[in-house]
Design a protein around this nucleic acid. Structure first.
Lengths: 232, 232
DNA sequence: CAGAGGTAAATTGGATCCAATATCCAGGCA
DNA sequence: TGCCTGGATATTGGATCCAATTTACCTCTG
């Protein structure tokens, strides 16, 4: 992680500058910025979230921070400990398997709905993202590309709630992509699967594509689970 | 439904008495009570949620109410309109199909994981719940029983996050069960499917059971969608 | 009589203030 | 020396207060 867990809030100025104009209310802004920070790994798992410090970092009072933390709690991204403050939610090996099971159920469903409606532009974008991933070395950026690649293939499903759920769990898994990245050569193997997935989709072979997605997801979850197991 | 949408907060004393002792903080209590009220239909879709009134009804200040509303917003149960207040989220025909697609993906997955670990006690409980539903006439209670029946079959999946997600969407669908109930004879047909589902599970036939669940879920979503379409 | 404009009321969004509780460190006692 | 106790400190949970904005009503005018 970019910051040692010393209790200080990492530098969020970039996130703030990027997001602030997009939102009308401070609460929405803080929620979006903090969610992004957690998913990008700027706020690592276990990091304490002092309300006072966050408020100062965002240039608002504690109240929008509190509301944002409650929303993130509902999304299982942060945990509250009574009178001890909130921390970025840790993930366990069981959680990894759990998220893997959810992804393995949702993503094929999204793909099946989306596949018939994918356009040439969609395939071009997906191919471009795979190519970018081939060249990318930065783990943080990797997660972003990986997410966009998957979501591009699912985007035409026409089911906003389903897609939101898929994206949420995809992001939750990506929080730890950097570990898999650092560990035993996940990257090339994952990339092979991305290529195969794109090919199957382009060929219109939904069943093959879904099979690849399921294996891809399960394998990622297993690998992350093994890594986390080794840690704990 | 029990209340006309006159802007007044319905009587919540029962919910309050039932829930208050279970929670340490006012925020958690309000969040749980309001979620229950929305899912049970005590607070119908579209009902305005005046912070001041809710605070008075719960005997707290506006602050815990605001935090609770934010959490419910993250769960898509309420919507905020700038400076006009929050309302209980409406559901559209598209939303119904959306939730149906999610359930159709998640519930078979949960059932497949759970089925091998179901005990005789579980089957007994499930059978009892089906029998209760056969006799039940009250729509509100129906939803509760329906939810518990489904969750009993999924309970041994050993995936807490997956189960939480399943329960959440099951509950979201159940909010409108009373409409299907009132409309064209949904009840008997649904009950036939419940019986068939239980039989298949008891026989250990996972594939058949999953097929029944998927049809059951899709059919419920279609019927609700048609009903909502007729309304809008 | 209808419509536009303006003002007042209502309600949320945000900040500050107060109380309750958990942590931490120092000091005393076994 | 190690453990327990007690008070100071830090931090959250909750309440009150203020400002900004929207809605509704009422009046005035064409």
């Amino acid at each position: 992680m970019s910051q040692p867990p010393d209790g200080r809030v990492p530098d969020l100025t970039l996130l703030i500058a990027r997001n602030r104009p997009r939102f009308r209310t401070a609460t929405e802004f803080v929620e979006a910025a903090m969610r992004e920070a957690i998913l990008e790994g700027v706020l690592p798992a276990g990091a304490p979230l002092r309300q006072e410090d966050l408020a100062a970092a965002f240039g608002v009072s504690r109240m929008p921070v509190r509301e944002a933390l409650r929303q993130l709690e509902a999304r299982a991204l942060v945990e509250f400990h009574p009178h001890r403050g909130a921390v970025v939610a840790e993930i366990s090996a069981e959680d990894s398997a759990d998220i893997g099971a959810i992804r393995a159920a949702l993503e094929p469903a999204a793909l099946r709905l989306s596949l018939p409606h994918l356009t040439a532009d969609d395939f071009a974008l997906a191919a471009e993202l795979v190519a970018e991933m081939d060249a990318e070395a930065d783990p943080g950026r990797m997660g972003e590309l990986n997410r966009r690649f998957h979501m591009t293939l699912y985007a035409r499903a026409g089911r906003p709630r389903l897609l939101a759920l898929v994206e949420q769990h995809l992001a939750a898994a990506d929080r730890y992509l950097r570990f898999q990245f650092a560990a035993l050569g996940y990257h090339p193997r994952s990339q092979d699967e991305h290529h195969a997935l794109l090919t199957a989709c382009h060929a219109g072979d939904g069943e093959a594509a879904c099979g690849i997605v399921v294996r891809h997801v399960i394998q990622a979850a297993d690998q992350l689970g093994a890594f986390l197991e080794g840690r704990g």
